[in-house]
Design a protein around this nucleic acid. Structure first.
Lengths: 176, 176
DNA sequence: GGCATTTTGTAATGGTTACTACAAATAGAT
DNA sequence: ATCTATTTGTAGTAACCATTACAAAATGCC
């Protein structure tokens, strides 16, 4: 499962063939389909696995006992760190998955992303209800951009600088 | 050429087959290959056409007679407007092209994007040399995010609000 | 009008895709 | 050890991809 995740993260859903997966896993196509049902089925399981192992722990970062702006800024920086962690598999598995050309896989990734955005929105809205919509959009857009730029070569220091710049908006618009 | 551009913009390079193009253009494959050489060749020409007709006029927006922060913020807002203009073909043709799975097409789009980022960088560096790197990265990342979110449903008002929020950073870090 | 050249349409080529039918091998149970 | 049930490997299917061979039609030229 970890190797499948790595494949999807490195190349993206569309560019990974089931032959790639079966080769990497050392199994044959019938075993693959007995185990996962389809390529999209494997992707679902990979997303679940990712959620349990590598997803940003939003609940730990977005804490009620710190200023909202600080918490969200910390989340952006953590995203930058994770997106740059493996240069061969840059960006966010889920955000990149929302842009693939397979309907099932894209909707699965979008659903996961929507859940995360809802979580962020609710966190912000608890203390800044009137700014939550705008700020959530801004943060989600920034994370999409960070993921995209991670894939096209921006290294950790550049992503972090961008994340900090974006974070500086939050302290302006979300006063403690 | 305009219809080919629309196809690529709506569906992305990978999801457009040459059969789609030949159908839309009302021509047959041999005519297509006589005219464009290859699918990537057509894409090159579409990028050139786009540069001449629909690209954001950076030279007009990034003027030497306005504060850098204002000009760059205006560019972000203009990007938001253009990315949302056609809901069926959201985002930026070039930025989306940099993420496709074909080597030739991706490099062509990347080259065009790199030129734009260099232009922006030089504009900023002329008056804020120490901040140019960071700010250019931030602006490029924001535009990538705006393009991505335009494709996944954010409408004009949401993109504009995000662009304005991002623009507010610039007035902080690039004092007039 | 007759000839050469270019354009066009049909149909195919080789490659890759996700996905399976089927037979051989293996494992488990008693 | 024998019989059954499951797993495995080989090979293949049907669809789609970008690209092209080839013949028919249309055009331009004199």
């Amino acid at each position: 499962m970890a190797t499948a995740q790595q494949l999807f993260h490195e190349r993206g859903y569309d560019a990974v063939s089931v032959a790639d997966v079966t080769d990497a896993l050392g199994i044959n196509p019938p075993s693959f389909y007995a185990a996962f049902g389809s390529k999209a089925g494997l992707y679902q399981r990979v997303l679940d696995y990712w959620t349990d192992t590598e997803a940003i722990p939003l609940a730990d970062i977005l804490r009620p006992d710190v200023p909202v702006a600080d918490a969200v800024a910390a989340m952006l920086e953590e995203a930058a760190r994770r997106y740059a962690f493996n240069p061969a598999a840059g960006g966010c598995l889920v955000l990149e998955g929302t842009r693939c050309n397979d309907d099932d896989a894209r909707e699965a990734a979008r659903a996961l992303n929507l859940g995360a955005e809802t979580f962020i929105h609710d966190y912000i809205a608890a203390r800044h209800p009137e700014a939550a919509d705008q700020v959530t959009d801004f943060v989600a857009t920034t994370m999409s951009g960070l993921s995209a730029k991670a894939r096209s070569g921006h290294d950790l220091s550049r992503l972090l600088a961008t994340a900090r710049l974006a974070g500086s908006v939050l302290t302006q618009v979300l006063p403690a």
